[in-house]
Design a protein around this nucleic acid. Structure first.
Lengths: 117, 117
DNA sequence: CCCCTCGTTTCGGAAACAGAAACACCACGG
DNA sequence: CCGTGGTGTTTCTGTTTCCGAAACGAGGGG
């Protein structure tokens, strides 16, 4: 499983369109979350593990390699930190954060638990 | 694996903070992509399968159930379509699309393939 | 020296996923 | 009437991904 990178065919799309590569990369478990946790500043591996309850070290390091290879994060003396590109991604993700808040409000109003028991 | 919903503890976070629920939901394979494909209008299940090369029907229906249960999509005479909430998500995802384009440019410039061989 | 913390890798079992096959359903044409 | 082909959906089997714990080496302080 190659690291998704724009311009290169990725899982689910032979075109390599940037958004497809992004969705392949971010559709891997914990990828978005790791970037999210690095927003505020550099964190070490064990610190990331502590913040992401349920994340296993094996997957963490796999993601760290992928995100590094994708140019979103970089090792630093203080652990891992976002690159300039990773920082702009953090900003691009902010609307998603705001949307999630709206989502929460809507779910409380209509259909409290309307689905699988 | 319960469908992530804001306000409910999800994988990786006992707080149920909206953004965490969102990241749990979207960190599942094809979830973002399915929403993306529904942006332009309703699509049937087999049409979705055709557009997402590599997506298996079993996972598709699992995602369709999850996204429906989360209030992002709804069955319609024409297949599945975004709810109002799902549509706003599509808009919240647009910065991500633009970011991906920037990402593609940067990757072409520096470090063409600087990682795993 | 010992102990504790960190970063990282390894490994066995569990969960998620891919892919093909199958079923039910409905419209169409022989 | 019976096939043919198009949907939507489920089930099954093998592979991939992931979890979780354990382990390793390196470095710092008692």
């Amino acid at each position: 499983m190659p690291t998704p990178r724009p311009g290169v065919p990725v899982r689910g799309s032979t075109t390599g369109r940037p958004i497809m590569a992004a969705m392949d990369l971010f559709g891997r478990r914990w990828a978005l979350r790791i970037l999210w946790e690095l927003r505020a500043g550099p964190l070490g591996a064990r610190a990331l593990l502590a913040r992401c309850e349920g994340l296993s070290s094996s997957v963490l390091y796999q993601r760290l390699r992928e995100l590094t290879s994708s140019g979103l994060i970089t090792p630093s003396p203080d652990g891992y930190e976002l690159t300039r590109l990773g920082t702009t991604l953090g900003q691009a993700l902010r609307p998603l954060d705001e949307w999630a808040v709206t989502w929460a409000r809507e779910q409380q109003q209509d259909g409290e638990d309307p689905g699988e028991a």
